[in-house]
């Protein structure tokens, strides 16, 4: 571990700076006045950039580089702003932006169908439902429990220790050629393995995987959706007759 810290000082610095920025942005448990957003945002952004730079410099095309920084940095910054926003409506909107940036990352990882599905399901359906519930259940004005967070220091510390562990595990893997060759790939689901004619993420190959290898799981997922919709209707409170 010490060796990793010595070899990757950027990663450790990035983690510390990012954690400091989050601590600054968190709705305080003791401070009454809200701090300005900009310093915490700058700290978080610097931390994220340092952490991403610590893995080294790939040689992709310039456009790929720009798109990665746009979408990756955008999703993380929107996530930071989401979990620190004092108004849940703004939190939901930042979450929608983070979702869009994640879909951009899906596109860069050659998953166009998944990106479209995520935009439709999350930005189209889930966020709208969240905003409806916020309108139905949110009290007017600022409420006390949105202005305070509970146990923020210890939660951020523990989470960033976990993130450091994950970063160490990712970076301690040596560089291997990619994609992993066919004899190393798991042979359990032959229909899912991409071929030269159908590279990863093509709709035809994905459909073969879903409706070939995972047909029963698709049926189960449909049943789950049906049961969940029935359950949501059964659980949701209904008003008495004749009242608004």
């Amino acid at each position: 571990m010490m060796e990793w810290i010595q070899n990757h000082p950027l990663a450790l610095g990035g983690l510390v700076v990012w954690a400091a920025g989050l601590l600054w942005l968190m709705p305080g448990s003791h401070v009454k006045v809200s701090r300005p957003v900009v310093p915490g945002l700058i700290l978080s952004a610097v931390g994220i950039v340092l952490l991403c730079l610590s893995v080294g410099k790939p040689q992709p095309e310039f456009a790929d580089e720009v798109l990665f920084w746009l979408f990756g940095g955008g999703s993380l910054i929107c996530g930071v702003l989401m979990i620190t926003s004092r108004n849940p409506a703004y939190g939901a909107l930042w979450f929608a932006l983070a979702t869009l940036c994640t879909c951009g990352l899906f596109l860069l990882r050659s998953a166009p169908f998944l990106a479209a599905a995520t935009v439709i399901v999350y930005a189209g359906a889930v966020i709208v439902t969240f905003l409806f519930v916020i309108m139905l259940a949110q009290q007017s004005g600022a409420v006390a429990y949105d202005q305070k967070s509970s146990h923020s220091v210890i939660a951020i510390l523990a989470s960033f220790v976990l993130l450091g562990g994950i970063a160490m595990a990712i970076q301690s893997q040596g560089e291997q050629p990619e994609p992993i060759s066919a004899d190393q790939a798991p042979a359990g689901n032959p229909l899912s393995i991409a071929t030269a004619e159908q590279p990863v993420g093509q709709l035809k190959g994905l459909g073969k995987s879903l409706f070939g290898d995972y047909l029963f799981a698709v049926e189960l997922a449909g049943t789950l959706l049906l049961i969940a919709s029935v359950g949501a209707i059964a659980i949701a409170p209904r008003r008495e007759q004749g009242t608004l």
Binding site: R109, S110, A111, F113, L114, E178, P179, I180, A182, A185, P186, N189, S192, I193, A194, V200, G201, G205, L206, K208, S209, D213
Partner: peptide
Amino acid sequence: RMHNSNEGQ
């Protein structure tokens, strides 16, 4: 993508 497989998606 690393494993050249559609299972992840």
